Simulated scan of single mutants.
Amino acid sequence: MAIKITDECINCGACEPECPNNAIYEGGVEWAVADGTSVKGSFTLVDGTVVDAGQRNAPIAVDTYYIVPSKCTECQGFHEEPQCAAVCPVDCCVPDELYQETVDALLQKKEALHL
């Protein structure tokens, strides 16, 4: 499953540079699939919505850092554990129960993001 950042986040920003998929954004900042990935053209998000990879999307959170579930692979294929959770000083990077994904699905997502 994807990782989410809870509202216990202190906005330290330690997690953002650790994400190999550039799935973490500062609160209030728009996101795009193409940010930090090699995706071009159409991309299907985890909810089935098809977007242009370069399309700027509304922030998922305004007051705290957030993780885009469609870009989060729990660091599968990169690291042994999610790096955001490993560096978070307040343990607010936790599994997102809304996005149940197998390791195989996470690895497929990684391959789709990094062609």
Rank of each mutant, 00 (worst) to 15 (best):
T64A: 07
G27R: 04
Q55F: 01
S38L: 14
A23S: 10
G54P: 05
V29C: 05
T49D: 08
D52C: 05
K110Y: 06
E80F: 04
C92M: 07
G54I: 04
V46L: 15
A32Y: 05
N11Y: 02
V103D: 12
L98R: 13
Q76S: 11
T64V: 15
D63P: 03
L115N: 11
N22L: 01
G13F: 02
G36K: 06
A85L: 10
Q83S: 07
F78W: 12
E101W: 07
W31L: 07
Y99N: 04
Q108C: 07
E18W: 00
K109R: 15
C84Q: 03
C92I: 11
D52Q: 10
P82I: 03
V29T: 14
A32H: 00
K40F: 09
I10H: 06
D35W: 04
E81A: 13
E111N: 10
Q108D: 14
G41A: 06
K71R: 10
G28H: 08
C84W: 01
T44D: 11
F43G: 07
H79E: 14
I24V: 13
K4A: 05
C88W: 00
D91T: 11
H79S: 10
P95N: 09
V33M: 12
G77D: 10
Y66P: 02
A34H: 04
K4R: 11
A32P: 03
D63H: 14
S70V: 03
C93S: 12
E16Y: 00
P20N: 03
E16F: 02
C88V: 02
E111L: 14
G48V: 10
H79K: 09
H114L: 14
G36R: 05
A112E: 15
T49G: 05
D47T: 14
D52V: 03
T64R: 12
T64K: 13
N11G: 10
L45N: 02
T64H: 15
L115F: 07
